[in-house]
Every structure is written in C-alpha cells, then in structure tokens.
Design a protein around this nucleic acid. Structure first.
Lengths: 243, 243
DNA sequence: CAAACAATTGACGTTTAGTCAATTTTTTTC
DNA sequence: GAAAAAAATTGACTAAACGTCAATTGTTTG
C-alpha cells in the first residue's frame, strides 16, 4: 500500500503547514486576532479541511505547543550529554533551554495560553496526554542528572527532599522568568536589565543552596558557559548572536 | 455636592459588582465561556451599562487582576513587618503570598490570561500602568528587605548582583510554581506531592545559595514558619486550615 | 413644571467558530 | 476503460458573542 503511505505523508505535511501558519499568525497578530478563516486562507485550504485535522482552534494551539515542547526536550537532552560534572551538565540543560526559547519565540506565547485550563480542556485528551508525557520526560531527564550527582557524591539531599522537588525548583524558576520575559511586564523599569543573566545567576544560587558541588565559588561557571556554547550549541549560539 | 458623592459611590460599587461577577464566572465556567451577555444578566444591568465601565471584556480581566494584585501586596507588606531577622521577614512575605493565592484562586487564573500580550494590549493603558506600578511596588518591598539584610551584614551580594536580581529570582520561582499549580499540569504524576512545601524548600535553598544568614542549617525555619502563621496571619491560616 | 441633561437599555450590525449538504476527486469493481 | 462506490474537499450557512448607538427612561436645574 505505497499509495496510502504517500497519502499519510501528505496529510501529515498539511498538518504541519496548518500548525506553522497558526504559529506565524499568533506571533504576528496575537491570540485575539488568530482566526480559523485566516488560517484557511493562508494555507489555501477550506475551513472544513482545517477542521478535519483539528476539532477546534484551541487544539491547534495545543498541537503547536506540543511540537515545540518536543523540540525543547531535544535541547535539554543535548545539554545533558555535555562531557563534564553533573552540575555542568545541568547548567548546559538550562542554557540549552534558554537558547531554545530565544529561537522559538512562539513557544511561550502558546504556553501561556495553553496553561489556561479552560483553553487546555477544550483540546482533545490525546493532546493533553502528549503534553503530560512531555513534561514527565523532561522532569525525568533533569532529575536523572541530579541522581547522577548524588551517586557520585557531589551533593547530599536533605532528608525529605526528592530529586523531583529540586527539578521542580529549577523548572519553576525558569518558567516564571520566561513567562515574564514573553509578557508585557516592563522588567527594565523594575531594575532587571538582563533577565537571562539573572536566571543563570539564580539557578546557580539555587544549586549552591542545595550544596551541589562544585559550588560556584569552587568553579568558574562563566568558563563552563562558554564551553557549553562552543561544544554543545555552537550553531544555535551563533544564530542568536551569543558569545 | 453630597448627591454626586453618593452617585460616585454607587458607580464604584457597581464596578465592584461587575468585577466580582466576572471573577465568579471565570472560576465557574472558565475564560472561553466568560461572556458579556452573561455578566450583564447576572449583574442585572444591561450590556450598555457594563460597557460604560469597561471598554472590552479583557479590560474586566485586567481590572480583576489589578484588584487582587493590590490585595497580594497587602499580604507581602504584612509579612515584611514580622518582628525578626530580615531573612525571617522574607520568609513571612513568601508565606503571606502563598496564603493569598490559596484564598484567591481566581488571581492566577486571571494572571495567566492577562500575562498574554494580546489580551493585555486590548485593555486601556491606564490599567496597564496600574499593573506596572503594582509590580514595581512589590519588587521594591522585597528588595528593601534584602537591603536591610545587606545593611545588617547578614549577606554580601557577589559583585555584579543587585538586590533586584535576587528579588527577581524569588519572584520567578513563586510565579512559575503557582502558574503550574493553577493550570492543568499533573504535578502528582511528576512526583510532586506537595508543591507548596517544595516552593518553601526551594526558596530557602535559593537564599542559602546567596549566603543570606541565618542559613537554614543555622536556624530551624520550620519554627519560623509556625511563628509567622501565628503572629502575622492567624486568621488566614485558620481559613485555609494551615497548622 | 418644563426643559436640559445624564444614565440606561436592548435591538442591531459585524465578526467568527463550527457544521454539513453538495460537489469534486480518488479508488474500486466489473 | 467506464461506471459505481467511497473518500476528500468545499464554502454557504447557523449560532453565538462582541461592541454600538438611537431611543427611552430617569434626574437635575431654572
């Protein structure tokens, strides 16, 4: 059945086109002006065909986010493969995520919307499960590096604290920061001139606080940062013009 | 002009009614099912009158958030007035904010939406300025307690790190956590059984990481927590059933 | 009390999500 | 290869909701 295989490919390709178009329109016009007629017009398919792929507007958003969440996972994975101490690998994951966000400005725009339960609930359970699985995978990846550190004796977690809870702390710190950066909050007026740098510093303070060695007083993580960009994300760093 | 004063009072009162109604509908039905006709019906005013107060649906959301943001500021302020060391006062602010979020479940629902630039931009600049001012005030409050700590010699900030950046770290950690808690993410499946506790622990790790004394190894902050609830938020703690 | 002014209303125009009968295209059958 | 069956595509249509504004109701003033 080579024919039906081709059909399937064409179908998937069109789904990608719809998502990409929606992504572009979301960035250009914003959520409130994102509408199905326009998506239909730009993709040059009829509205009915769009609805063949997605049951509602919100489902396109969720699919968009699901796609970019997978991409984000790739950046985390690449970071975790840095040659070095677990804490350096963790730093590489954070830096990778930062690069991902820079390269995919739509990601947080969609995330803010889909985080809203009323929008998320309208999408099909299939997509919801996908998102959950994606979160779980990333959590597992981060907690895994931490477990490596514990195994190698670089850090002892206080009684009652799990690797997942530490991962949660890293997650929430990054999430909150990128939420603020992708929204209309005037960080500059609040005295935050370089939020990316602040996120990096705060992550290291958090890890120092857990006693994860080498502490930032024992290792120059600025050197690590440069090494990460060079060894793991050379192309992406160039793309966003990072030293 | 006693008459016009009364008029003004009635007008303000109605504005409050509209906001409260919208808040209730947002919690009950969610954003997508929140509509102006229903707000008009429930408040028993006509749609035209609602539009006398707010230029669009999104402006009601922003007003809702602005109101609860002020309330949140009160909790922070009360926390900052705890008798004790600066770091304890900081902990009291965090705990106060946590209680506020528990008591105002609509706050983060609205915040997630208003954080979206397309929704925020539709509201009038007046409200946008209000939100900025509110954020600035809170940032100032948090940074102020940190400055006290620096003045009293409890912490030395590394060169190049400002109190605002540390405040930013506390802010983003809390923001990200409450975003996740107020959304559909299944934290339990991710191994986070008590997110509030995790937020508390992570905050202390962050402050430990900055070297803010007394470190959590030097002082039993669980005792501080109990004291804060007793001395600063006795009523609120009882309301949410916190020990 | 009447005229001017202000506040309130809800019917109406417009936009857009989502549906579905009609049409076109593709596949199967003989 | 033609005809019939199945599948895919379309866009006119319905319903819902936003936001407007002319008409109406209520209030103040001279």
């Amino acid at each position: 059945m080579a024919v039906s295989e081709r059909k399937k490919r064409e179908y998937d390709q069109r789904e990608g086109l719809i998502i990409d178009t929606a992504r572009k329109l979301l960035l250009d016009r914003g959520y409130l002006d994102l509408n199905m007629d326009q998506i239909a017009e730009v993709t040059e398919y009829s509205k009915g065909t769009i609805y063949q792929h997605f049951s509602c507007k919100e489902e396109i958003l969720v699919a968009m986010l699901s796609e970019s969440a997978d991409k984000a996972g790739q950046f985390l994975l690449r970071g975790s493969n840095l040659k070095g101490k677990p804490r350096e690998r963790m730093a590489a994951m954070a830096l990778g995520y930062d690069l991902f966000v820079c390269l995919n400005p739509d990601h947080f725009k969609a995330k803010l919307l889909v985080q809203n339960e009323s929008i998320m609930r309208k999408a099909s359970p299939t997509f919801q499960k996908k998102m959950d699985a994606s979160n779980q995978q990333n959590m597992h990846l981060v907690a895994g590096v931490l477990r490596d550190a514990v195994a190698e004796g670089h850090v002892e977690l206080k009684k009652g604290i799990t690797p997942e809870e530490v991962a949660f702390g890293l997650w929430t710190g990054a999430l909150g920061a990128y939420v603020l950066m992708s929204s209309e909050v005037n960080l500059h007026a609040l005295g935050i001139t370089d939020p990316r740098k602040a996120v990096w510093e705060n992550m290291h303070a958090l890890l120092d606080g857990f006693g994860w060695r080498p502490l930032s007083s024992e290792l120059d993580y600025e050197q690590t940062r440069i090494r990460i960009l060079k060894e793991v994300f050379p192309q992406e760093a160039a793309q966003v013009g990072r030293a």
